[in-house]
């Protein structure tokens, strides 16, 4: 039953993805209700999936890579729905739905990711907080990366004077820079909570690789944030770094989790 919701959710994001491709092809690139509502419907189905999965396993559904992917996708959509209308970034949805779709279709097509934990470990609230806060933080970082891509696209067009159709539908670069910075700030605060609660869980020696990696990510975003806030990093370089940092996180998340589980 829970997977049914996930399939429905993935289908909704596929609709958004198809709209994005169609809009690119037709050169009429603007936010649409179809895109927004398909994302909203996808989010509701994601929430239902995570709720049912949580009920089934008796804890926050972050016990394997499959659930991590879905939770990450859910966090991204959550941030999109929260900040999209606030910063007039409705076009963020056009960029968000393809990424969420790819994450979910990847999770669905690789059953090996959905290995259930054989030994039922007692629920530790610190562990739950650690896992949930960290993944939601990565959702914020993912959206910051998307806002960064949008900034770079818009900035390049403004610099080169070659204005494509998308230029007229992307938000102003100043709004994008503000959104990028605030998303990094939110993600950084959540990751701080996640890492601190991770330390409260204990058994640090068995997760050394993961701890080093997490602290590394935290330090990287901390650097970006402090440099941006102290105006040592221009919005353009901040956007570039947020994209690079996101790529780094997405590329290493799998490997780190794999090494961590092997070590544990």
């Amino acid at each position: 039953m829970d997977r049914l919701f996930l399939v429905a959710s993935t289908f909704c994001f596929l609709l958004g993805f198809a709209y994005s491709m169609h809009a690119l092809g037709a050169r009429v690139y603007r936010p649409s209700r179809l895109n927004f509502f398909s994302i909203l419907a996808g989010f509701l189905c994601q929430t239902a999936f995570l709720y049912l999965r949580g009920e089934k396993i008796g804890r926050c559904p972050l016990t394997n890579l499959f659930e991590v992917f879905i939770f990450l996708a859910w966090s991204m959509v959550l941030f999109y729905l929260l900040i999209g209308p606030t910063y007039r970034l409705s076009l963020l949805g056009v960029f968000t739905s393809p990424l969420v779709f790819i994450l979910q279709i990847g999770a669905l097509l690789l059953p090996v990711l959905d290995k259930t934990v054989a030994v039922k470990v007692a629920v530790n609230p610190w562990m739950e907080l650690h896992a949930a806060a960290s993944i939601v933080a990565y959702g914020a970082f993912a959206l910051a990366g998307i806002a960064g891509v949008m900034y770079l696209v818009q900035e390049r067009q403004l610099k080169t004077h070659h204005l494509h159709s998308i230029f007229f539908h992307l938000p102003p670069i100043r709004d994008l820079a503000v959104a990028n910075r605030r998303l990094i700030l939110t993600g950084f605060a959540l990751l701080t909570v996640g890492i601190a609660s991770g330390f409260a869980v204990g058994s640090l020696s068995s997760h050394l690789v993961k701890i080093v990696w997490s602290v590394g990510v935290w330090a990287l975003y901390g650097f970006i944030l402090s440099a941006e806030l102290s105006h040592r990093l221009s919005p353009r370089r901040g956007a570039w770094l947020s994209v690079v940092a996101l790529a780094l996180v997405l590329c290493t998340l799998w490997g780190i989790r794999f090494i961590d589980q092997a070590a544990a």
């Binding site: 102003p172 100043r174 709004d175």
Partner: peptide, 8 residues
């Protein structure tokens, strides 16, 4: 239009 695309 350009000014609005830069500053909002």
């Amino acid at each position: 239009e350009l000014a609005e695309k830069i500053f909002g």
